[in-house]
């Protein structure tokens, strides 16, 4: 079996950035910290702004958003700022007294209380003292979970819960980390793609790819993970999806199930490992964008 080594001089990255699909009419209002947004005092201040002698000034580099009387500046690259109801994928970093600390790519680690999880054995079991000692047997450091944001603490930390059967510990699959601003907000973040894999697009930028579970019910309480080997065809699909996600995020394309699917279809002509080459990446992303424009206008 031959080994492929691809070496080259650095390529000249083309400057033609792909046009964002959701470009609003007219130019975007981009500001840098210190730029005065407006001097009109009738507006309310939102995030990313501060008042400087009656001038509304931006404090982050980003895009100005104006909703009625509220002006805020959305930074272009940011940590995840959770809202209630967001679906997140996180990794357990610490096991504490009655809760777990979860890393969700936000400013502070999120919190998952013992009382907010579904223990195996059904939902209605009361939490006994024993549960605290055996917390580690449910979720350990390094485990991945999918959860929903229940509320936001005053300091910005998120409180998560997995009180539904679709959330819980994640089994075999691949985690892809991308910027949270590239995930489009949708009604549902759990998708079973027709190509043979499933995807969870966490709002915090963590995307989880896993093989579509078979006949058995999806979450058997959320803590049972099967360690059976996955078939080669499923693996290929997942690897291809992963590379497509990385390609799309490198070119700042908004991610949602349709864009990922189109990208997958377009990439079928290439080998999986070639997708990450710069020129192939550009090609695939351009074709995906064309397809998106065609189908969605």
């Amino acid at each position: 079996m031959a080994m492929a080594v691809d070496m080259r001089l650095p390529t000249f990255r083309s400057d033609s950035r792909s046009v964002s699909l959701f470009d609003r009419k007219g130019s975007k209002d981009l500001v840098v910290p210190g730029d005065v947004i407006t001097t009109d005092t009738g507006f309310m201040r939102g995030h990313g702004t501060y008042l400087d002698d009656d001038n509304l000034t931006a404090s982050v580099a980003g895009e100005v958003e104006r909703v009625d009387k509220l002006i805020c500046v959305k930074p272009l690259k940011t940590r995840f700022n959770g809202e209630v109801g967001d679906v997140v994928v996180g990794r357990i970093t610490e096991v504490q007294q009655k809760r777990w600390k979860v890393e969700t790519n936000s400013r502070l680690d999120s919190v998952l209380l013992l009382s907010s999880v579904n223990l195996p054995g059904g939902e209605l079991r009361r939490r006994c003292a024993e549960d605290e000692l055996t917390m580690r047997s449910y979720l350990q450091e390094g485990d991945l979970i999918s959860a929903e944001v229940q509320s936001v603490y005053a300091d910005g930390a998120l409180l998560l819960h997995t009180r539904s059967l679709k959330y819980g510990k994640l089994g075999q699959g691949v985690l892809v980390q991308i910027s949270p601003s590239l995930i489009k907000r949708q009604k549902t973040h759990f998708h079973h793609l027709p190509c043979g894999a499933s995807i969870i697009l966490g709002n915090n930028g963590f995307v989880w790819l896993y093989p579509t579970p078979g006949q058995q019910d999806e979450e058997a309480g959320g803590f049972f993970t099967s360690l059976e080997p996955i078939s080669l065809s499923d693996r290929e699909v997942i690897s291809r999806l992963r590379n497509c996600l990385l390609a799309l995020s490198a070119h700042k394309v908004l991610l949602y199930d349709t864009s990922v699917l189109y990208c997958y279809e377009v990439s079928l002509s290439q080998q999986v490992k070639d997708i990450l080459k710069p020129e192939v990446m550009e090609e695939i992303v351009m074709m995906t964008q064309q397809k998106l424009v065609e189908h969605e206008g």
Binding site: A4, T93, D143, L175, P229, E236, R242, K273
Partner: peptide
């Protein structure tokens, strides 16, 4: 840090010569 299931996934993949990013075991 990886969860146990992720490690198993990676292990089985390498056994089948298909790594997470689609490379074979001997690709750079």
């Amino acid at each position: 840090q990886l969860s146990e299931a992720e490690k198993v996934y990676v292990l089985h993949g390498i056994r089948d010569d298909l790594r997470v990013d689609g490379r074979s075991c001997e690709d750079y």
